[in-house]
C-alpha cells in the first residue's frame, strides 16, 4: 500500500527526513513512533501529497505521490495533527462538502455521511457548528472527514493529541475499529498507544528510521542484555561479591539497605541466569525474597535509542550498539 524509498525532505537547509525507506502492506496498522520533531509529520505530509519530497520516491497504492498526486489523493484519508476544520460550518455540512470534494457520488453522499457520523459517534452534534465543539468531538469530526470516502489508506497524524484520557480511549477504539477495514498509518509520540493499536511499529528519530517491526520483535531484536532484580537479606558486601563472581554477569548495582538489599544485575542475553542466581544466594545461606527478570519495554528501547543519539549528536543512528555495561547505571529501572 505504501512504498517509500530513500525519502529525503529538506527545509531551508535543515534535513527533516533523511533517507527513509519502508513499506506498508495492505491491511496493516502501522504506528509511526518518534519524538516531536522527529520527522513523522513531514513524512506523512509527503505521503498525503501536501508537499513533494526533496529526493526519493513515495508511492501509495502504486501511484507516485508527486507525479500522480491526484490518484494518490483520491485514495487516502488524511488527518493532520492540528485537525484543521472550518469552525463556521456545521458538522454534517462539512462532511457533506468534503465528501463531495473527495468524489463521493451525489446519491451515496447522504448515506456515506450518515454512516461516518454514526460510526464516529457524532450523532448528537451533527447539526452543531464545528467551532462550538469540544476537542474530542472535533477529533472525531476530523476522523469522520478522513474516512467519509472510504479511503484505501488512512493517515492519522497524532490522532489522540490534546485529548483527555476518556477521549483518548474512545478515539483509540475508533482507530482499532477503522484498522479492521483499511490500511492505517498513524503517528504518535505516546508509547503505549502504538503498543495498543499498531501491528507494526516504525521508530523514527531525527529524520531517520531507526527501527521497525512488531512491538515484540522490536524489543527482542534490540535487547542487548538481560536484567534481573533480587532482594537478599545477608551481609551486603559478601552477597555483592558472590553475585559478581557468577559467570556471564556483566553488570551489577547494589542499593544497600538495613535489612533487605536490592541488587540489579545485567548479564549477556544468551543465557537465563535466574536458576544460577537463586542457587548462589540460597547456597550461601542468605534469604532470597524476590528474584525476577526485568523485561525490556518499548519505552526502554525508545529512551535507549534517543539517549544514544543525544550522546553523539550529528552521528548517524543506523544501528543500535549495546549500551556499555557499567556497574552502577542508575537509569536502569524506574518501574
Amino acid at each position: 500500500m505504501i512504498e517509500v524509498r530513500d525519502l529525503v525532505k529538506k527545509y531551508a537547509g535543515v534535513t527533516a527526513v533523511d533517507r527513509i525507506t519502508f513499506s506498508v502492506e495492505k491491511g496493516e496498522i502501522v504506528g509511526f513512533l518518534g519524538k516531536n520533531g522527529a520527522g513523522k509529520s513531514t513524512t506523512m505530509k509527503m505521503l498525503s501529497c501536501y508537499f513533494p519530497p526533496t529526493a526519493g520516491v513515495a508511492r501509495v497504492a502504486g501511484f507516485d505521490c508527486v507525479t500522480q498526486s491526484m490518484e494518490v489523493r483520491r485514495r487516502i484519508g488524511y488527518m493532520p495533527e492540528s485537525v484543521p476544520l472550518y469552525p463556521d460550518m456545521r458538522v454534517e455540512e462539512y462532511l457533506t462538502y468534503r465528501a463531495r470534494l473527495k468524489g463521493v457520488p451525489r446519491r451515496e453522499r447522504a448515506h456515506a455521511v450518515n454512516e461516518v457520523v454514526s460510526s464516529t459517534g457524532l450523532m448528537d452534534v451533527r447539526r452543531k457548528l464545528i467551532g462550538s465543539l469540544s476537542k474530542g468531538y472535533r477529533q472525531r469530526t476530523g476522523l469522520a472527514e478522513a474516512i467519509v470516502h472510504k479511503p484505501e489508506l488512512l493517515i492519522l497524524d497524532e490522532p489522540t493529541a490534546g485529548l483527555d484520557p476518556g477521549q483518548i480511549r474512545q478515539v483509540r477504539e475508533l482507530i482499532k475499529e477503522l484498522g479492521k477495514r483499511t490500511t492505517l498509518l498513524l503517528s504518535t509520540h505516546i508509547l503505549n498507544e502504538v503498543e495498543l493499536t499498531a501491528t507494526r511499529i516504525l521508530l523514527i528519530h531525527r529524520g531517520r528510521l531507526v527501527a521497525s517491526g512488531t512491538p515484540g520483535s522490536l524489543v527482542g531484536g534490540h535487547q542487548t542484555a538481560r536484567r534481573y532484580y533480587l532482594e537478599v537479606r545477608g551481609p551486603g558486601d559478601a552477597v555483592n561479591a558472590a553475585l559478581q563472581a557468577i559467570p556471564n554477569v556483566t553488570g551489577l548495582s547494589w542499593s544497600p539497605a538495613a535489612d533487605w538489599h536490592g541488587f540489579k544485575l545485567e548479564s549477556v542475553p544468551e543465557f537465563d541466569l535466574r536458576a544460577e542466581l537463586a542457587k548462589t544466594v540460597v547456597g550461601n545461606g542468605w534469604d532470597l525474597r524476590e528474584l525476577r527478570e526485568e523485561k525490556m519495554t518499548l519505552e526502554d528501547l525508545f529512551v535507549q535509542i534517543t539517549r544514544t543519539d543525544e550522546a553523539a549528536p550529528g552521528g548517524g543512528v543506523t544501528q543500535i550498539r549495546p549500551a556499555p555495561v557499567e556497574p552502577a547505571p542508575a537509569a536502569g529501572g524506574p518501574a
Binding site: 501529497c49 501536501y50 491526484m70 493532520p80 484543521p84 476544520l85 468534503r98 470534494l101
Partner: peptide, 14 residues
C-alpha cells in the same frame, strides 16, 4: 493560518 489549506490541497482538487 488555521491549517485548513492543508486539507484543501490534499483533497483531490486542483
Amino acid at each position: 493560518k488555521t491549517g485548513t489549506l492543508e486539507m484543501l490541497v490534499t483533497a483531490p482538487v486542483s
